[in-house]
Write a protein that binds this DNA or RNA. Structure first.
Lengths: 149, 149
DNA sequence: TATTGTTATACTCTATAACTATA
DNA sequence: TATAGTTATAGAGTATAACAATA
């Protein structure tokens, strides 16, 4: 038996996947350009962004960024050379090094975020109900997802 | 004057940006892992995905992927060596080379998409209304965005 | 003159394997 | 033995500049 007619046509998974890909491209492009304005690569921008929440050991950082631990050495080396992060020996385990943002590093990541004009404008254009709905749908759809941003 | 109390608390732009980063990061992780199962890098997966819509000149491909034209040479070289794409001289402009998927290339990109289980399952869990709403919100938020997927 | 694709170059990102110093 | 960080290595991605062929 036929269902009740809908106002909106059905959206299939393939369509949503495609839209998700487009959305990711737009967001990532905005992020990459904002990072470039701070003379940062996308990976460096992501790293600083993760560290904005607080210090993290090299290993933890690698896990958060979904890359091999050996990559972190060079990545953090380059950021440290520019004075954006600092390595600090862990007080409790002498094998561990904690990485933290310097004041300059904080400034850089904040500036990066502030210059993501395209995405910011797009989100600002939504009204309160729409923002709440989008928040709810994204949370439910990607709940528990590892943060690779 | 205070507004009418809302059932859902207000979601600010910074929160939505963070959630967007997490959600799209989850999508990207799923894509990257699916590409790896086909022995493809994320960039190679994106390239094949774009070519799935039809042939494109080197230059156009570079624009679509938001990278410099000089990168395409090596990228397409590697895919061509594996028999996933093919270069074909343009009949109308002898400077131009059109790139197209081989049958094996089509198989690879289709397999890649089919193995994005995490994202597929997440989207399948939404009901029709929710899917339509998500589609609407993402479209409006990232409308007219260049496809860099 | 302008454009397309390529080459040369340099740097960054990435994974694998082996090493060191701790635990 | 196991783990944290590093090093060495190799391959892939990326941008800039210069080039040959063609428009």
């Amino acid at each position: 038996m036929p269902g009740i007619p809908r106002a909106t046509p059905r959206v299939d998974t393939a369509q949503l996947m495609e839209l998700l890909a487009t959305s990711l491209g737009a967001y990532y492009g905005d992020f990459t350009e904002a990072a470039a304005r701070e003379n940062l690569t996308a990976s460096q921008g992501k790293t600083l962004s993760v560290l904005r929440r607080g210090p993290a050991a090299m290993r933890v950082l690698a896990q958060t960024l979904s890359c091999d631990a050996s990559n972190m050495t060079g990545l953090i080396d380059r950021l440290e050379k520019r004075g954006l992060v600092r390595r600090e020996p862990s007080p409790t385990d002498r094998r561990v090094k904690n990485v933290l943002l310097t004041a300059e590093g904080e400034r850089a990541v904040d500036a990066l975020r502030a210059s993501m004009h395209t995405t910011t404008a797009a989100l600002d254009a939504l009204d309160d109900d729409e923002r709440a709905t989008l928040h709810d749908l994204l949370t439910r759809t990607f709940a528990g997802a590892k943060d690779k941003s």
